[in-house]
């Protein structure tokens, strides 16, 4: 991954020096294994902090919402789709951005990897398609493919959709993956089983709202759970209120979600939050043939009306 990092630095230095952008948003190395931190460089000198590896799973489109000025941003496939969505939704203008596209081979799942070992992990190193995990008295090398986050493992848009320049050669897109396997599983359950499945899924939730806040789609000035006049939803740990939050948040992402996995990655309780959004993604694909963030010129299905929109549910 050092090639990517070097190329990113070279491009970032150039666009900053040329005055094309005022800042370049990327990642810097974190203080614990598998945790890179979103960061920005404003001068050619500060560019050296930027890195790129398999721990850049957060979605950087989250950091450009309503920003003024010209911005450089490093974007893997999903980030670029969220940038497209941002542009469509008027959260930023395309000509404010210099997009440094990064063809992506997937990000590793720090929660899964931490859970694999009883002891603390001290270093995680990436070399080609191998990951070496080392701790006190153990070291294990595994294939990166096995360690990918669930959304990366089923991703079919690894290459950036929209970019000004690439930091590496385009990669082959994954075929023969079923992004909706877990949705299909839930669909086959009875109503009670479904209810209990989601009850169990959400039981650890502490309502920290990390899922909402890491999501580039969640940019409302005041979220509905934070409204107090009227107060739409209770603030306690009551299961109905917790479920209301997750269900409504998912609806707000309908036709907009790119399955970047940021919500799941940031959850301190390890909740599989994508179980909600994935169902809506599947419906959007089946009903409207739509996947979010693939084109700057097409309006999303939920803000357009077409005479051939499916309407079997209306009696």
């Amino acid at each position: 991954m050092t090639e990517y990092t070097d190329k990113i630095k070279e491009i970032a230095k150039r666009v900053l020096t040329e005055g094309k952008v005022e800042m370049v948003i990327g990642f810097r190395e974190g203080s614990v294994p598998m945790m890179n931190q979103p960061h920005y460089a404003t001068s050619a000198e500060s560019v050296d902090e930027l890195v790129w590896d398999c721990n850049c799973g957060l979605n950087l489109a989250n950091y450009i919402t309503d920003k003024k000025g010209n911005i450089g941003i490093i974007a893997k496939g999903c980030d670029s789709r969220n940038i497209v969505t941002h542009v469509i939704e008027n959260k930023i203008k395309r000509d404010q951005l210099y997009i440094i596209g990064v063809p992506c081979t997937g990000m590793i799942d720090h929660q899964k990897i931490n859970a694999m070992f009883d002891q603390e992990i001290l270093t995680v190193e990436e070399s080609g398609d191998k990951i070496t995990i080392t701790g006190n008295g153990f070291s294990k090398t595994m294939s990166k493919q096995e360690l990918l986050t669930e959304n990366c493992a089923v991703c079919t848009h690894r290459n950036p959709i929209e970019y000004d320049e690439l930091a590496g050669d385009l990669v082959e897109e994954q075929k023969d993956v079923d992004p909706y396997a877990s949705v299909t599983k839930v669909e086959s359950m009875s109503a009670d089983e479904k209810w209990n499945y989601f009850e169990d899924l959400l039981s650890p939730c502490i309502r920290c709202y990390a899922c909402r806040n890491a999501c580039p789609l969640c940019y409302c000035p005041t979220c509905f759970v934070d409204e107090s006049r009227p107060q739409w939803v209770g603030k306690s740990q009551d299961p109905t209120d917790v479920r209301t939050f997750h269900l409504l948040r998912a609806y707000h992402c309908a036709g907009r979600c790119t399955d970047c996995g940021a919500c799941e990655r940031v959850c301190p309780m390890g909740i599989k939050i994508r179980e909600f959004t994935k169902k809506l993604n599947k419906d959007c694909l089946e009903l409207y043939g739509w996947e979010a963030g693939l084109s700057l010129d097409e309006r999303p299905p939920l803000d357009t009306f077409k005479t051939d929109d499916p309407d079997e549910f209306i009696k």
């Binding site: 979103p38 960061h39 920290c208 709202y209 909402r212 806040n213 890491a214 603030k235 306690s236 940031v266």
Partner: peptide
Amino acid sequence: AFACINCGTCTYVCPTCWCFDVQDE
């Protein structure tokens, strides 16, 4: 603070954070 997403994780997992909000239902 650039990277911060303003979630409540740090405060909720902290053993010494004590702030609360009063609600009537």
